[in-house]
Amino acid sequence: MADDNDIFKKSEEFNQLINKQKAFLEELVKENEKLRYQVAQLKSQPHNNGLFREEIEVLRKRVESLELEKEELIQRYQQVEEENKDFAKRYVEIEEQNNNLANLYVASYQLHSTLDFQEVLHIVMEIVINLIGADTFSIMLLDEKSNELVVLASEGYDENTKFPNVRFGEGIIGQVAKSGEPYYINQATKSYPVDFEHPLACIPLKIKENVLGVININKLLVQKDAFTAVDYELFSMLAGHAATAIFSSKLYSQSERKLSTIQSFLDLLTTSQNQG
């Protein structure tokens, strides 16, 4: 009986061992399956790598094109930056031109706003003071009979200053009148002494080639260091427009005087006839 029990026990143990082995084998089979699957996957890897490489290639090309785009954008940015600087420079130039035009327009408008000789002289002086910034200057006209330049108006000189007549062609002033070419000193003007016959600038007043007179500038206003670009434009404008305005107003005054004389003569004749 005891043997039967032992056998039963041993067969039970054997059964359990078999079952364990079975479970172990099943586990091995599963593991094998897993490994097979992984092997299959690994086997299919070269195909996947190909896809991956294609994607990488596409991305690499995209990166390259983006790099190119970036380079282009940087270049464009630099161009825009340059254009911007250019525009800023151009803006300043246009502002300057605008200032010049405003000055020239006003000066020209004022010069031709009257036919009164004294008023014209006054306007020329206003332009020289306010638009050019001259402190000490004179306006001289050519006396055709004596062939001398005579001061008609002046500003800023000492009370005792005497203005000698200048012979046509003599000295700086006479030479300017003769040649019709303006004379300028471009060095530091503040230290330049006030000397009537040695001006900082001498501008001929001329109609075509006929010089009527000159404007002599001997000193600039304290806040003005030297002549600027607009001053030369104004000088050029003054040379022509002031001369025309002065000439017209002189002609007008002469014709007014003649008209008045003729009128007086006619009145006298009429009175004589009425009395006779």
Binding site: N103, V106, A107, E126
Partner: peptide, 9 residues
Amino acid sequence: PTMRQLISF
């Protein structure tokens, strides 16, 4: 008048 015109302008 010149300055008046220039300023106004």
